[in-house]
Each structure stands twice: as structure tokens, then as C-alpha cells.
Amino acid sequence: MKRTAITRRLAGLGGAKWDLHLRARELAAQCRDIIELTIGEPDVPTPPELVEAASDAMRQGRTAYSSGRGEAGLRRALAEHYTQRTGREIAADQVLCFPGTQTALFAVLLGVAEAGDEVLVGDPMYATYEGVIRACGATMVPVPLRPENGFRIAAADIAERITSRTRAILITTPHNPTGAVLTTEDLEAIGQLAQLHDLWIVSDEVYADLVFDGSSFRSPLSHSGLAERVIVASSISKSHAAPGFRSGWCIGPGEFTRNLLPLSESMLFGNQPFIADMTEKAVREGSSVASGMRDRFSARAALLTRRLADESRLAVHQPQAGMFAMVNVAATGMNGRDYALDLLNRAGVAVMPGTSFGATMTGWVRVALTIEDDGFNTACDRIIAHANAIREDVA
């Protein structure tokens, strides 16, 4: 039977990038002692008050069809939230609701690019970005994120890759996997390029509430001069420890969201009303768990940085935000994928190869900061012992 072009474009993407994580789960199911540091699962359960809000809404009959835009109360709450966050007036008709950031990004990319177009994105990148870009038929153009620039995407590197086919710049701030946070100056320089070349800026901001002390978050949506070309995607998955509820959104110019609505309705026709009610409560009241996660993730990143520097030849890029730290494993003489497989098989610690996030990360792995402190300390012990064993083997 014939396959469609989109299935060919997406071959090898999606779940294939998570094969090491899946292998770790298989070993754990065989009763192997595995410490899992692979995915960005919050280290606390969804707050009970949000679970109860969803349950109450279901009991009250909030299980009927939704508006294609999303429930009116949630869209008003998001408009008010982003008005306060950005200092710009954001209206409810600039909001579309989706089941999670992933779906929002999929729809948004279909709304800004198509076959023959190009989308610029930092390398490394979140593992699904290549898929959402390929899905719309566009070509992904990687922009190297340099360690010496703190892994922040640089306007000069973007400028070198803009062509007549470029339609959008996809940014992530705070960044996954590196934890970098773009500065106001970074965003202004990117915005100038977007204005000069008439480009969209798509900003994935799912980690905006997980910025560590000493850094501050700013969205390109705050820049009034970019009002007609910035689209933000986010969700409550990270900020409210609610990834399984799949509740996200995009915020963009009113004309863009109106034009995207038929696509959204063709895909989904809105999210579940009872989840929308829970999300409205989450947005209006803020997160009861974000500050604790920020403190714990920051402390674990500092611990990992200190211990690997003192006790091994591995080097950590200390993140400014998020749930992960990148570790440079080049000193082992192994590439990141071989290192991650060896670490899993010999030490029982599962981390993600850097190449799951881009071609520039051959000598790196991503370590999740999301397990409890005792387990994380044990993982550090194992990583250090494994690295030193490799050194002895080579010697």
C-alpha cells in the first residue's frame, strides 16, 4: 500500500528518539535497579485542588462539547494572565486552547509554514520540533547554540541562515534541553531580524514558571513592536505538575488565531470543558508547586555541577531554568549515545543522549533533575564511579 508524504517525512522521528528511555523502562520491568533521569516528569503529583476542580466539573456535567476556540472562561483567564505578564493588552480572541503545548505547536507550525518554506530553530532543540516542522512540509534549518554563549540562540547565527524561503524562527525560552533563558537584548535582536525579513516568531514558553534565582524570564510577546508576528505556546504541564491533563494554548495576533481556528476545529474542536475549568483555576490562582520545583531543580543542578567537577572529568553546563542539565562526556572518549548506553548497562542510570536533541550535541547527555534527593545523590555516585571506571579502562 502507498504511504503518504507526511508519514515518510516523519519516519524515524517521534518516539524513535526516546528509545534509550524505553529501554530503561524495559530493564526496570525486569527488576533491574534503574535510576531514570530521562524525561521531564515533575517531581510532585498534580496539586489535589486541581484534581478536585476537574472532578467537580465532571460531576456538574461539564462533559459536553466545547467551543472550537476553547472555553470562554479559560480564554479570559489566559488573556488577563498574559496582559499582566507582558504589560500589553491581550484579548480573549487572541487565545486558542489545545490539549498540551505539543498540539499547539503542531497547529501553529501548520499556520505559519508549508512545503518549500524554511523554519529556523536552535540546535539543540526539544526532540519533537523536527517533527512538527516536517509535518507542515517545511524544511528545518538548525541554528547552532554555542556553549560559550550559554546555549542562547544568537541573532548573528540566525541572520546567516535566513533565505528568501524562511518563514519563521522557533525559539524556546527557557530552553529545553539546556535550561538557557533568553535575555531582553537577545529577544530585541531576534525581533529586529523578524521585522527586517517579515518572519514569524514562535515562542515555546512551557518552562516560564521554572526560572531559577539569578535569572529572569521575558517573552517576545512583551515587545509591542512585535505584536503582529509573535505566537506563544505553553501549558500547565510543567508549571502546575499536570502533564497528563494535556491542557495548553497558543496566544497570537487576533487575525492569526481567527485564521488558525478552522484548522484547530478540524483537528480537535476544543479541549474538554472539565479540564478547561481546572486550567482556568490554575491560571487564575497561580501554581502552588512551581516555587518548590524551582528550588529543588536548581539545588540538584548545583549538586551535579559541583560533584562532577570535583570527582570526575565530566563537565556540567549549569542551567538557568527548567528540569534538566547538560553534561559534556567528551572526556570519556565516547560519544553521548555510546556513553548513555554504557551508563545504563553498567551503572543502571538512564540519561538521554544529546543527539536526541540535535546534531551539535554529539558529546553530551541530558540529565533530568526530577527525582527525589536521595535517589539523585545515588545517581551522582553511580555516574562518577562509571566515569572513573572508564578512565581506568582507558589507562
Rank of each mutant, 00 (worst) to 15 (best):
G40N: 10
L199A: 11
E280Q: 15
G252F: 09
R152S: 07
S66H: 08
F256V: 08
A115C: 14
G225C: 06
N149R: 03
L226Y: 10
R32H: 14
S224A: 14
P319M: 09
S55N: 13
F376P: 00
I171W: 04
R75W: 10
K17M: 11
G70F: 08
L110D: 15
G131C: 03
G363M: 08
Q272F: 12
R300M: 02
D310S: 10
P142G: 09
I90M: 08
A115S: 13
A350V: 03
G40S: 15
N176F: 13
R300C: 11
L343Y: 02
V394L: 14
A77S: 14
T378D: 12
S67Q: 13
D33L: 00
K281C: 12
A379S: 09
N176W: 05
D186F: 06
T183Q: 11
E49G: 03
T7R: 04
D277F: 00
S356L: 04
R25Y: 05
L22Q: 12
E160V: 01
L182Q: 04
G179M: 03
T378P: 00
K281H: 10
D56W: 09
A302E: 15
R382F: 07
Q272C: 11
S216N: 05
A227P: 05
R146E: 15
E311G: 07
R32A: 15
V351K: 06
R300H: 14
G61L: 07
A24G: 12
C380D: 08
D33G: 00
A53G: 05
I383T: 05
N149C: 13
E265R: 12
L268P: 01
V351D: 08
T355L: 13
L343I: 11
T279L: 07
A135H: 13
L170H: 03
G100H: 00
G286V: 03
V206Q: 10
A299C: 06
K238S: 12
D123Q: 07
P243G: 08
L196I: 07
L226D: 08
C31W: 05
F212G: 06
R313A: 14
T103I: 14
C380V: 11
